[in-house]
C-alpha cells in the first residue's frame, strides 16, 4: 500500500489545496487506501501540521522554542492576544488571522521569532509584533478573503 503515496503525503496534498483537511477528504483517503477513516483521522491528529478546521487568511506561527522562550516569547504571545484577541490554535473573529504556536522555526539567533505566511520576522518586541500584524491587517482590509 506504500507503493504510491502514503497517508501523510495525501493529507499534505489536501491541506496544501484547502488550507486544512475537510472531513470528506478523510473518508475519501480512507476509501482510496482501503483503511478505516479512524486510521486516517489518527494520522491527521498525530501531526501538529495538520489542521481540521479552516484557518484564517493569514497564518501566524509563533515560535515557542528554547531560545525564544529564554528571550520572552510569552510576551509576544500576550501582545498578539492583545492585538488580535486570539491565543494559540485560534482564529480571529474577522477571519483574517490564525495563530499557532510551533516548537521551533530554526531562526534561534533572531529570537523571539514568528512566521507569517512563510515569511519570518525576527528580534521581536511586543510593540514590533503588534505593528507587523497591524500592517498586514490594514493591507488586507477591503480586499475580502
Amino acid at each position: 500500500m506504500n507503493e504510491n503515496e502514503s497517508i501523510v503525503s495525501l493529507l499534505q496534498e489536501v491541506q496544501a489545496k484547502n488550507g486544512y483537511i475537510p472531513k470528506d477528504e478523510i473518508y475519501r483517503i480512507a476509501a482510496e487506501k482501503g483503511v478505516s477513516p479512524a486510521k486516517v483521522t489518527g494520522v491527521a491528529t498525530f501531526y501538529s501540521q495538520f489542521r481540521l478546521s479552516k484557518p484564517g487568511k493569514n497564518l501566524i506561527l509563533l515560535c515557542k522554542g528554547t531560545a525564544c522562550h529564554v528571550n520572552s516569547a510569552d510576551g509576544i504571545a500576550a501582545a498578539l492576544k492583545e492585538e488580535l484577541g486570539i491565543g494559540g490554535g485560534e482564529t480571529s473573529a474577522d477571519g483574517l488571522f490564525t495563530l499557532e504556536f510551533v516548537a521551533c522555526l530554526g531562526c534561534c539567533s533572531l529570537s523571539p521569532v514568528m512566521m507569517i505566511n512563510g515569511v519570518a520576522y525576527g528580534s521581536l518586541t511586543p510593540e514590533k509584533a503588534k505593528r507587523i500584524v497591524r500592517e498586514i491587517r490594514d493591507s488586507n482590509d477591503g480586499k475580502g478573503a
Binding site: K64, G65, T66, A67, A103, C104, G106, C107, C108
Partner: peptide
Amino acid sequence: DEGDPGAF
C-alpha cells in the same frame, strides 16, 4: 527533521 528547539 531537526526537532530539537534551539538547533538549526
